[in-house]
Nucleic acid binder design. Structure first.
Lengths: 334, 334
DNA sequence: CTGTTAGCGCCTTCAA
DNA sequence: TTGAAGGCGCTAACAG
């Protein structure tokens, strides 16, 4: 049997209002009545309907989360951080996987709008006009992770992508490499795409190294695109000795490509990645890369959403997390 | 401004009921009134509250999904299948990641109960008594994927694990291997754990090969446990020439371990995995394994839930998907 | 075909 | 401290 608040009230011989007060600790209730109500609640295993509660309280305790690719370990870690933090604070996550398709993403945004979520955490690679338009319809807090734009009004959780890319390339230079290529992400992705590429340029410039256009390839963060970009690089007459990849997956793809062509990493080519996904440690050879804590970023995103929900005074415009270089086996001193 | 159905009714000069009928196509409405209502809906950009709708219609259009590990590619593929199918049918997924912790799982089940989901898809490794108890409280359809038990009343989506394991081991035997080890999963996992182990035994038996207890190690499906189990095997005086791993991650761990000990795959040891996750193709050497389509399994799970929701006559007790052996680089003929 | 009237289950004034 | 009553926004049964 499924009980409702009226049943409980009757069984306890009190009014619905009193039951509600006991359940929510919203108003003082005498100890005697309180325990009587709790007794009945326990006996009947009564669970108040979140639905009805949401309808009258105007909050769903649901946070929408949009990710472009749930099978990408980067996002599953972010989600994990979001989820654990949400759970702690009594929120739940409505997860939407856009599969890298803009229209799926817009559809989901529409769904989330109808579901009357309390807040939205947006993860993605690029911010399109349609997206901006849609986001305007949300009258709830929105936070972005790993992506953002100058004029955005939404708080952003990120790392210093420019600096991190610069660190990676500087490390290669310090290891004696002078001909350094890069496989970067889409440049319409303002953070991981554009800034990492700029960090690369800056490091070359700071060390008076020339930019060789052919050494620079654009990928889409997938393993396969790393493979393909590396194929292009290997077909050059003059080749780089080291390649900086804007994420670990492209780095793995590049390594696989190098191996398939009969060369060795790092003996023939040095590779440095970005993100430090689990695979980078397990791959053989294990990948030298830039590490960032996606879990913590997810956590931060959720915290910011909650403080916005609480109408806290100080809402950060952005939160910049740390990164560090993890040296493993794919970069050789020359 | 946020409109509600009453506003729309007033603006269109009709009753709320009529607006509702237009929006849901639930009852005939004259063309003229219909278009007048739709006009207003468009102008106001009105979105009916799912919340209120759910409260009065007694369905939330929400399907709860429990997974033990969202960063495990197996589950992210299943989720993908579930999600795409759900979306097609107008449902949404409330995803809960238990992180392999039983109490987190039980907590989430409780949350889902309160959220009044329309159905539940359970993914996990083992079915505990607490879980069974909790599941009893659900008065909505429940489907399981990749797990199940004899006496369960819930439909199960799976592959023929016994046959698949048998195929894998038979393949090794056919390649000339006689000393074959196995790294299996927890045996209290009735499908992937127990049945894959039994398939292994059966293949040995069918070929009159002896079971060598030391060749058999138990892992927990993680890369690290494959590594550890392989360490044990390598420490034996007499070693197997091939190892069947109950999933790809343990297989990768085992390979990494072999390489770290200065041996080669498949020259010194042959390895066969199970699941055909993306990594198995990318790893170097690429992994020979048993492939199954997790995406399709997720899709099936959602379809079964929906037909249960529709109270279809014929609800399958179980759906068995195909598997196949993918030969790559980790098994050598001897 | 359309409108009126009750709920759905809970929370929250307002009075007592 | 407690109860009665109204309302959240929508659907559905019942009239007309």
């Amino acid at each position: 049997m499924k009980y409702n608040i009226t049943d409980i009230a009757k069984l306890a011989g009190v009014s619905k209002a009193t039951v509600s007060r006991v359940l929510n600790n919203s108003k003082p209730v005498s100890d005697e009545i309180r325990s009587r109500v709790l007794e009945v609640v326990k006996e009947t295993n009564f669970k108040p309907s979140q639905l009805a509660r949401s309808l009258s309280s105007k909050q769903t305790k649901l946070i929408g989360v949009i990710v472009p690719d749930i099978s990408n370990p980067v996002f599953s870690q972010i989600i994990n951080g979001i989820e654990v933090e949400a759970y702690k604070k009594g929120y739940n996550v409505l997860l939407c996987n856009s599969n890298n398709k803009e229209d799926t993403e817009l559809n989901y945004l529409e769904v989330l709008l109808n579901k009357e979520i309390d807040g939205l955490i947006y993860n993605g690679f690029k911010i399109t006009d349609n997206l901006k338009l849609k986001l305007k319809e949300f009258h709830v807090p929105v936070v972005m992770t790993g992506i953002g734009e100058e004029q955005s009004n939404f708080p952003v959780i990120k790392i210093d992508n420019f600096k991190a890319a610069n660190d990676a390339v500087s490390f290669l230079i310090q290891k004696g490499h002078k001909k350094i290529g890069m496989i970067h992400g889409p440049v319409n992705d303002p953070l991981s795409g554009k800034l990492r590429l700029e960090g690369y340029y800056q490091a070359l410039k700071d060390n008076n190294l020339e930019v060789e256009k052919n050494f620079i390839q654009e990928g889409n963060y997938k393993i396969s695109s790393g493979y393909k970009s590396m194929t292009n690089i290997l077909s050059l007459v003059e080749k780089p000795t080291a390649i900086f990849c804007a994420n670990d997956e492209m780095a793995i793809g590049a390594i696989k490509c190098i191996i398939d062509h009969g060369y060795k990493v790092p003996n023939d080519y040095s590779i440095i990645g970005f993100d430090n996904i689990e695979l980078s440690e397990i791959y053989s050879p294990s990948l030298t890369t830039i590490s960032q804590s996606f879990y913590n970023e997810g956590e931060s995103a959720m915290r910011v959403i909650i403080s916005m929900l609480n109408k806290d005074k100080h809402i950060p415009k952005e939160i910049v997390h740390d990164h560090k270089l993890i040296e493993r086996e794919t970069v050789k001193k020359i």
